[in-house]
Amino acid sequence: MIQLQNVKKYFGQRLAVNDLSLHVPKGEIFGLLGHNGAGKSTAIGMMLGQVWPSDGEILVCGHEVTRNRQQALQKVGAIFEAPVFYDYLSAWRNLEILSHYTAPTPASRIREIVDWVGLSGREQSKVRTYSHGMRARLALAQALLPQPDLLILDEPNDGLDPEGIHEMRQTILRLHREMGLTILLSSHQLNEVEQLCTRIAVMNQGEKVFEGTIAETRRAQSWFKLRTGDFAASVKILREAGMIIGEREGSLVLLAEGTGSDAVVVKLVGAGHRIFEIGPESQNLESFYLSLVQGRKGAA
């Protein structure tokens, strides 16, 4: 559904996206992870033809976006963080306005979508009277109006309360299940991505540092739990020996590539440290993400 090939984007001299290649297969819920400023929104902007790539090729729904934007976006819906509307107009009018940029949309279709997202009865109210949750539903409604095959969600949970986040999660799962949509979800809420996505890509400082399935992130075990008599002193020794590239929470260490736990034990015992526990930390997406990002920082 989406294919990026060696995409680069410069803003002036600054390289915002560097050599990004990405493949989002049809029918997947694909997570695009990264901290603020990692290049996620720029990448999404390029997929939607809002930001022009400096180099590389971007295919959406089989069409090259920079050359054939109209065809590429014909079956695409998008939601952006903190969705904005024409607040002085009604929700219904907003939906009419936005949907007509794609194709003439009959009132019955708008009615169907308004019912689907649960805004019935409030569709004639001005958007300025809407809560964050209702705005999120309206954003979803406008994205669904063109009957998309691909949904691009850029931080859809931004500004939502826990109940709203739960509701959005259920809606995304429903869209995938009932309509079979391909969904690209950009977020830095790792818990959400872990619960929703089947595949992810992690971006850091404009570069893709990982692409794979959630199952693969769980198998990657580079963080180790280390309990010693003096954790800080142990970390200092291991760092000086180049055996770790990161540490956190006063008990976890990120082993350097090629370093095993046995070598860590030998090093610390040789230095006179007592070891109470050492073993791989059970991985969740958060620890995997941190290992990737901190590992990069350590390597840098």
């Binding site: 939607l48 033809g49 809002q50 934007r69 109209q70 065809q71 590429a72 976006l73 014909q74 695409v76 819906g77 998008a78 952006f80 903190a82 969705p83 904005v84 509307f85 024409y86 936005l98 940029y101 794609t102 406008q142 063109p146 691009i152």
Partner: peptide, 11 residues
């Protein structure tokens, strides 16, 4: 920010 919403459409 509404321009971004518009330009996510095929216009």
């Amino acid at each position: 920010g509404t321009l971004r919403m518009i330009l996510s459409r095929p216009i």
